[in-house]
Amino acid sequence: MSSSSTTTTTTRLLMLKASDGVTFEVEEAVATKLGAINNMVEEEGSEDLICLPNVNGKFLGMVLEWCKKHANNNTNSDKGNDEVNKWWDKEFVMDLDQNTLYHLLMAADYLSGTELVDLLTEKVASMIRGKKVEEIRETFKIKSDFLPGQEEEIRKKNSWAFE
């Protein structure tokens, strides 16, 4: 991705430091896709090193990878960009295991990456759609904590949703 440095004239680089000490050097235009970093840059201005004590390096890396793709695709103002982004988003969430999905979601939420949160919550929603209650419990390893009879009562009340 050598093109990324040539697209903007003055590319400022930011250093992001994850909770485990791993640092990332990112273009400002990429990092500011995250609302939280955008705020920090605007408020503190000159600070080039940003510490993110709530995000682990592995997931910060993934979040930044996503930002990079979207920042790059948005600078080339082609009409096909939406398609490219969509295709790439699909790839991005396709094989996420639940642990990664959870940590990414928390990281994206913490960093106020609204679009990424939207993408990831949609992924979770897609894991719920079309499944039976028992299948959902199995998928997400949820134990029913209803008292005897409670579940039946809810089922009865919402019987229209089961037809």
Partner: peptide, 21 residues
Amino acid sequence: ILTLIFSKLSVKTLGRIKCVC
């Protein structure tokens, strides 16, 4: 976040998954 996920589901799905927990 949970609310955000649920807001993407149809009313019918919501009626069903109320029984999960």
